[in-house]
Simulated scan of single mutants.
Amino acid sequence: MKTRRILVVVDSSPAAQARVESALNLAGAVAAEVTAILAIHIEVPPVAASVMHGGWYMGDEILSQSREVALRSADLIRETCESVAERLRGELGWLQKEGDAVQVISEEARYHDLLLLGRPGTDDAAAGDFRGNIHSILLEAGVPCLVMPEDRPGMSRSPGRILLAWNGGRECYQAMRGAMPFLRRADEVTVLTLVEHPDEEAMARHRNGRAIDYLRTHEVNAGSLVTSREGLFTGQSLVAKTLELAPDLVVMGAYGHSRFRETILGGATRQILTHAELPVLFAH
């Protein structure tokens, strides 16, 4: 449960610099190495695409020009990220790969202990940005994923106050294990369970107690909080609690229900991804 390799996803957005800064500062706290990865998407204009499929000889030339533009953009992104590392006096590895963003990022993430990426925005999918596919990455990567909001500065240190959203499920356990290096360094850890009915509170306290006992064996002192959802869906109630408690980091399982069910009913994962205004470490 040590974090030795962190992979941070970068792109052309200004928020990528904050992600690199966060990754380097977290790496400094846990003695990890950081690599930035850029998934290169070759944009081919619709007219050019029809020309290529029609077999015209200009297709290869247009594709080559599009690739050249993408590689020039990649060089600028790399320079920007390396300037952040230089300012922080940190070491930053670099990977850039052409292809489908979900496949490129997910495959490389499996050789790292933590994946750091940005929260999806409203126009990311239309722009071909990886953040439009973040739900697929959470499911495919196979490692804990730290999702950063786009409008916050980079994390300056390991989080001091951590909220662990708990229901005793497998995904929660994986998230807790993935966050252990940061839980050990936190000043305050709260294990939170949300209940729908008062008669669920005793079992919730029991589950929280078991999680706290486990954390104690890993030198983490944690407190318990069992509270009502107050008629809200779990995701809505969890968003409200993050606003009330204002932790530096939320740790939670991702897609405890099937992704289809969460898409149709609006599960906790989607609610947090859409509305949380602070870093969230997910594990599936």
Rank of each mutant, 00 (worst) to 15 (best):
V30D: 05
S12Y: 01
E21C: 02
L117A: 15
R229C: 07
V20P: 01
H197I: 00
P45D: 06
D151V: 02
A31P: 02
N25F: 03
T35R: 15
G90N: 08
A186F: 10
G54W: 04
R210I: 11
L245F: 11
A254G: 12
C81I: 01
P247C: 02
V84S: 04
A125S: 12
E196I: 02
G118C: 03
M155H: 06
D151W: 06
I264K: 12
D60Q: 14
A141H: 05
E61H: 10
Y255E: 00
G142K: 09
V10C: 08
L163K: 06
E68I: 10
A204N: 03
V191K: 04
E61Q: 14
L273P: 09
L281G: 09
H218C: 09
T35L: 01
A254R: 10
H41F: 07
E150N: 15
R72V: 08
S50C: 03
L249Y: 03
E150W: 03
A29E: 11
R4Y: 04
D75V: 10
G160F: 04
H206F: 13
G231M: 06
G93P: 07
G160D: 13
M180D: 00
L88K: 09
H112R: 08
Q236E: 15
G128K: 06
Q174I: 05
R170Y: 12
V189Q: 01
A29L: 02
